[in-house]
Simulated assay, not measured.
Amino acid sequence: MKFVFRFAMAAALLVSSSVAVKADDIVETAVAAGKFKTLAAALTAADLIPALQGDGPFTVFAPTDEAFAKLPKETIAALLKAENKDQLTAILTFHVVPGKVMAKDVVKVSGAKSLNGQRIDVSVSDKGVMVDNAKVVATDIKCDNGVIHVIDSVILPADKNLAETAVAAGKFGTLVAAAKAAGLVDALAGDTELTVFAPTDEAFAKLPEGTIKSLLLPENKAKLAAILKYHVVAGRVYSEDAVAAKTANTLEGSPIEISVSDKGAMINQAKLIKTDIDASNGVIHVIDSVILPPAKTSSTKQQLRDAVAKGAELYNNGHHQACADLYRNTLTKLMSTTPGDSRMRHQMTSVLNSAGRETCSMQRAWTLRHGIDKMYASLESAN
Rank of each mutant, 00 (worst) to 15 (best):
R6C: 02
A11G: 14
D25G: 06
V27E: 02
V31G: 02
K37R: 14
P50W: 10
P63L: 14
T64E: 10
F68Q: 14
A77R: 13
A77L: 11
K85G: 08
D86Q: 15
S110Q: 14
S110V: 11
A112K: 11
V124E: 13
G128A: 12
M130K: 15
N133L: 12
V136S: 03
C143Y: 00
D144G: 11
V147W: 01
I148T: 07
V150T: 14
V154H: 10
A169L: 12
V176C: 03
G183K: 01
A189T: 05
F197K: 02
L217Y: 01
A244H: 08
A245W: 12
T250L: 08
G264Y: 06
A265P: 03
I273A: 06
I273Q: 02
K274D: 06
I277R: 08
D278R: 10
D288L: 09
P294A: 10
A295I: 07
Q302T: 13
G311P: 07
G311E: 00
N317M: 06
T332G: 03
S336T: 09
T338Q: 07
G340Q: 09
M344V: 13
S350I: 04
L352N: 01
S354K: 15
S354H: 02
R357L: 13
R369S: 10
K374N: 13
A382M: 06
